[in-house]
Amino acid sequence: MRQVVRNTLSAVALSLFAIAPAAAQEAYPVDTVTIYTHSKPGSGSDLFLRAISAPLAKYLGANVIVDYWAGGSGAKAMANLAVAPADGSAFYATTPTHITTSLLSKPDKTYKDIDYIVNFFYDPEIFYAKADSPFKTIKDAVDFAVANPGKAKWGGASAGSLERQILEKIKKAKGAEVAIIPHEDGAGLLISVLNGTVDIGVGELAELSGQIEAGELKPLGVYMPERLPNLPDVPTALELGVDSDVIIKFRGLAGPKGIPAETVALIEAAAQKVLADPDFKKEYEKLNLIPGYMGQEEYRGYVGKFVESQAKFYEDFGVTAE
């Protein structure tokens, strides 16, 4: 009898809410894992999640679906995640955005109310200029700015973006007098670099590799601890002494607080297998993503450090919420 009720109920639920049918899986604590994103359908983050969901399902032994908690640049996602069941069925795809939102718009639930599980990738950032720019490396550009106060123009992506923070940090450290001009997004900045409005820009390699291949842009430096496999000849900012420390964009998973340690261990194991999967590896290398696996302990510490550096930046530059 109960079986009948349950079947009917699940049939109703399926038709009502269009949950993908759960395959009979025994391995993972739940049949279906949902990864929520605050990004819109079709956006870069969304496509990335769709790409990763197949290998993750394979190694986790559960269905993985992608769903949306859009609105408020992650504010809604954090609020929903904080009260989601802590059984390993709901995760939030983390990018630095939700931390910016937590710090600047002060929603009810912030990064403090959720827990970090694993990290998958870093999004490498590079410095770039037009192909015919006189600068060979980012060091040349910084030296020029220091030597010619008020002459240099650098371009960052949106107002509070990480890309802009990188430039402001360098400007402050070197005492350069340079205009750092923010844009709507990375694409707007790319135009400004191409038409000479600004001398150099900072952006994600994924957005720029087409132009670099075509010889319209040249990379001036990599903002990562190590050189990139796709750009082996381009030095890092650390090598050049342009910056002493790097802040990097990350992509991983967060969950509600209180997920049992055994469940976390299962996800950690699956994440490592996902990154080692040869087919998936080809895919993410093409997208210029750098694997950056971190288990829960390490990831928590990493995010904590990230939050600190963000908070300090906002405080130093007087960017605060009303």
């Binding site: 509070g160 402001e168 007087g318 960017v319 605060t320 009303e322």
Partner: peptide, 10 residues
């Protein structure tokens, strides 16, 4: 008038 001042505003 009460919008906070920021060093980033140019």
């Amino acid at each position: 008038d009460s919008i906070p001042k920021s060093l980033l505003e140019g």
